[in-house]
């Protein structure tokens, strides 16, 4: 059986909020290493991969592999019943029909309990190869969100160009064009504001801004975001979560026909 207790319901609430626009139904794969999720969006252009390691929970118990097929709209409805600061416990039997969520207030004696019916989800599972990326950019997640939002006002697509000069986000639309260039930057007062660019060869790729702006819903999970790029492979957008856990988005590049 599964029993996984999170100190703050907020973490799961934010993860689900971040992916619910991309994915409707997905399996939460539970085993002794933690809870993992991998799902493609309907158009198969983007892929979400989440890992909540067992260390992120206290305690965490899962004796065997359990797949919880959950409709994210239903999960969102139930998670709205939890206060951000509540302690959240997920429970399921070995061959479950439902997943049980318990929310406890640390400050009062309130205890809420909900069951969500599970679904059988036959999901295509993609083996994501370990990739040595040509360029990695680590930057404030709020900055990436702002750039994405600003350029989305002008265009559907953004070109991300990474050279030794820096990283340039640029777009062209009906009303005109725009670009934002970032260079490596170290902020002595606040390292969350640092921009670090690790480049082994120049990269230039084009992506859908609509998808990137969806990924940016995860900005509340981490002050930093890491973008990893190589020519002609999907972009990796990664938000680090506590205890070495992560939320990753992969986005196929737009390629000239």
């Amino acid at each position: 059986m599964l029993e996984a207790r999170l100190e703050q319901a907020n973490l799961l609430k934010k993860v689900v909020d971040s992916i619910t626009n991309l994915v409707q139904d997905c399996n939460f794969d539970c085993n002794d290493s933690g809870i993992a999720l991998q799902a493609m969006d309907n158009s198969h252009v983007a892929l979400v991969a989440m890992m909540l390691r067992s260390d992120a929970f206290s305690p965490f118990r899962c004796d065997r592999n359990i797949a919880l097929g959950i409709n994210l709209t239903s999960l969102t409805k139930v998670l709205r019943c939890a206060q951000n600061e509540d302690i959240l416990t997920l429970k399921a039997e070995d061959a479950p029909d439902v997943v049980n969520l318990v929310f406890e207030s640390a400050e009062s004696d309130r205890l809420s309990e909900y069951d969500i019916k599970l679904m059988d989800i036959d999901q295509e599972h993609l083996g994501i190869p370990d990739t040595e990326y040509a360029a990695s950019i680590t930057m404030p997640s709020a900055e990436f969100q702002r750039i994405t939002r600003d350029l989305l006002a002008l265009s559907e697509s953004v070109s991300i160009e990474c050279t030794k000069e820096g990283v340039k986000f640029s777009c062209q639309g009906d009303i005109g064009s725009g670009s934002v260039t970032l260079r490596s930057h170290t902020n002595v007062d606040n390292e969350d504001r640092n921009v670090s660019i690790d480049l082994s060869e120049p990269v230039s790729l084009m992506f859908s801004l609509k998808y990137l702006s969806n990924f940016c819903k995860a900005s509340g999970l981490s002050s930093r975001v890491k973008l990893s790029l190589s020519n002609e492979v999907p972009l990796l957008v990664e938000y680090a979560l506590p205890s070495n856990s992560f939320l990753r988005f992969y986005l196929a590049p737009k390629i000239g026909d």
């Binding site: 083996g127 999907p234 992969y250 986005l251 196929a252």
Partner: peptide, 14 residues
């Protein structure tokens, strides 16, 4: 013309 490539073209089926 630019088209959006589907992601599974890049990743092997596991």
């Amino acid at each position: 013309k630019i088209f959006q490539t589907q992601i599974f073209k890049f990743f092997l089926n596991g």
